[in-house]
Amino acid sequence: MAAAAAAGAGPEMVRGQVFDVGPRYTNLSYIGEGAYGMVCSAYDNVNKVRVAIKKISPFEHQTYCQRTLREIKILLRFRHENIIGINDIIRAPTIEQMKDVYIVQDLMETDLYKLLKTQHLSNDHICYFLYQILRGLKYIHSANVLHRDLKPSNLLLNTTCDLKICDFGLARVADPDHDHTGFLTEYVATRWYRAPEIMLNSKGYTKSIDIWSVGCILAEMLSNRPIFPGKHYLDQLNHILGILGSPSQEDLNCIINLKARNYLLSLPHKNKVPWNRLFPNADSKALDLLDKMLTFNPHKRIEVEQALAHPYLEQYYDPSDEPIAEAPFKFDMELDDLPKEKLKELIFEETARFQPGYRS
C-alpha cells in the first residue's frame, strides 16, 4: 500500500510507478496490472468513496492506442447498470505532455475469474450472474457493438453480487458484411471463450460470437473449470467437437473457408456428449439454455433477447427493466489503419471533457 500523499506533496508512487492523480484522489492501494497499465484503488475526496484507477501508458504502440481509444469512446457513450462506466479521466493539459491516461471507475471487490478459483456457486448465484451478463449484453448488442472478449476476468463483482462487464478494448461495431482481413492475426481474445466460426472463417462476425462466450462462462460457473481449455488453435476446435459432436452437413455448409471445411470433413465422426453427463448436478433449465448458447452453427445460436426470456431466468426476466441503447454506435473511421500519432490526438480530444474549465 502506498503511503497517503500529504496535501501538495506531488504524485504518489505505487510499486515504483508514478500515479499522478492528486489532489482529488489519494490513499492509493495496488490492485493489479494488465498488459499496459496498473490498477489501484484510491480515495475520492470529492465523492467520499474509494474508486478504481487504471493507469494506461499506450502511446508507444499502435495496438494499445487503438484499444484505449475504443474503450474510452464506447464506455463514455454507454450507460447501463451492468456495464462499468467511466467516472473521470485524468491526463496532462497538453498533448505533448500526455504520456499516461488515468481512467477512474467504480471500485468492484472482485471478478468472476477470482471468485470461481475459490468458491463453488449455488444455482441461485449462477442464475443471477447469468441474468446480469445477458442484461448488459442486450444493451451492448442493441448499440450494434460486439464485445468480443467476454470471459470471467472481464466480469466485475461486488459483495452485493452486482455484476458489471468491463474491458471493451477489443470491441467492434457489428459488421457481418465487412471482410476484416487479418482478423485472426489481430484477434487476441482469450482462445477458450472463442466461437468456432472465428477459427473457421475470417469473413465478418456477428453478435452470436458473444453468446458463445457467455455459454462458455455459464459452463464454467457450473463446474469451476473452463469447458474448452484448448492449448492452441486446432486443439481448441477438437475440444469443442469432442463435446458438441461432429457438425451436420448443414452446419458445414455455413463454413465459407474450404480449407477449414475440408479439415472438419477429414475428422472421424464424434457423438455429442449429453450435458447432464458433463454437469450431473446442474439445473435442467440451465443445461437447456447452455445447449442453445453453445450451438456450433452461429445462425442457430440463441440471441440475447431470447436467452433473457428463457425459463431458467424467469424469476428475473423483465423486458421493461432491460434497457437498450438510445442509438446504434458508430465509429467515424476504422481505427485499425491509423498511425499511433493520430490515435493519440483522438484520445486527447475524447478525454477533453474531463479537463478543468472544459467548454463543449
Rank of each mutant, 00 (worst) to 15 (best):
A7Q: 12
G8I: 08
E12A: 10
M13P: 09
R15D: 05
Q17D: 03
D20K: 03
P23F: 00
S29G: 00
A35F: 01
Y43P: 04
V46S: 11
K55A: 10
L69R: 15
I84S: 12
G85R: 06
I86G: 01
I86Q: 11
I89S: 06
I90R: 00
R91H: 15
Q97H: 14
V101D: 03
V101Y: 10
I103C: 12
I103W: 15
Q105C: 11
M108V: 00
D111N: 12
L112A: 07
L112P: 06
Y113T: 10
K117C: 13
T118Y: 05
H120E: 10
L121T: 13
N123Y: 15
Y131G: 01
Q132W: 01
H141C: 10
N144I: 15
V145A: 00
S153L: 04
L156C: 07
T159G: 04
T159R: 02
C161K: 01
C161E: 11
D162N: 13
I165E: 07
G169Q: 04
A171W: 03
R172V: 06
A174D: 06
H178R: 12
T181W: 10
L184R: 01
Y187A: 00
Y187N: 14
Y187T: 02
T190N: 12
T190G: 11
W192K: 04
Y193K: 10
A195D: 15
P196W: 06
E197F: 05
T206Y: 10
S208N: 11
D210C: 05
S213L: 01
L218M: 15
S223Y: 15
S223I: 10
R225Q: 03
R225L: 15
I227R: 05
I227V: 02
I227W: 03
P229W: 03
P229E: 05
K231M: 14
N238M: 07
I243W: 00
L244C: 02
G245H: 09
G245L: 09
S246Y: 01
Q249M: 08
L252Y: 04
C254P: 07
I256L: 08
N257H: 11
Y263W: 03
Y263G: 03
P268N: 06
H269V: 08
V273A: 09
V273I: 09
V273Q: 03
W275F: 08
R277W: 06
F279A: 04
P280G: 10
N281L: 08
D283A: 13
D283V: 13
D283I: 11
D283C: 03
K285M: 10
A286C: 07
M293Q: 02
T295S: 15
N297L: 08
R301P: 04
I302M: 02
Q315I: 03
D318P: 02
D318K: 06
S320Q: 11
S320V: 05
A327C: 08
E341W: 03
K344I: 09
L346R: 04
F348L: 13
F348D: 09
E349D: 15
T351M: 01
A352K: 08
S360A: 14
